[in-house]
Simulated assay, not measured.
Amino acid sequence: MRCEIRHTTEYRYKEPAWDSFNEVRLHPSNEARQTVRSFHLHVEPEAEITSHKDYFGALVHHVHVHEAHTFLKITAEAIVDTHPVPDPVPVPFSELRGVRGRYTEFLVPSPRVPAGEWPETFGVRRPLPHEDLPGYLMELTSHLHRRFTYAAGATSVSTPLAEFARHGRGVCQDFTHAMLAVARGLGVPARYVSGYLYSSGGMLGAEATHAWVECFLPGTGWLGYDPTNNCLARERHVKIGHGREYSDVSPVRGTYYGGGRGELDVDVRVYAEQ
Rank of each mutant, 00 (worst) to 15 (best):
S51T: 04
V24N: 06
H66M: 09
I5C: 01
S94H: 11
D81N: 13
P88S: 02
F39G: 07
R33D: 09
I49H: 01
A78P: 07
A32V: 15
L72F: 02
L96Q: 01
A68L: 11
E44Y: 15
E31F: 04
P90K: 03
D87G: 02
D19P: 03
H64M: 08
E77R: 15
A47N: 05
N30F: 12
H61K: 06
A68D: 12
F71P: 02
N30H: 14
T70C: 10
E10Y: 06
Y11H: 05
S51C: 04
H42I: 13
E46H: 15
E15P: 02
T9F: 08
E67M: 07
H69Y: 04
R6T: 13
R2L: 15
R37P: 05
T50N: 00
T82E: 02
A17I: 09
N22L: 09
L72K: 12
T75M: 11
P45A: 08
L41C: 08
E44S: 14
E44L: 13
S94E: 13
A47S: 03
E77P: 12
V80S: 07
H40D: 14
D87R: 14
V60K: 01
P45F: 00
N22K: 04
H42A: 15
H83A: 01
R33N: 09
P90Y: 00
T9G: 00
T75L: 10
L59Q: 13
E23T: 08
F93Y: 12
Y13F: 15
W18C: 13
K53L: 12
F21R: 14
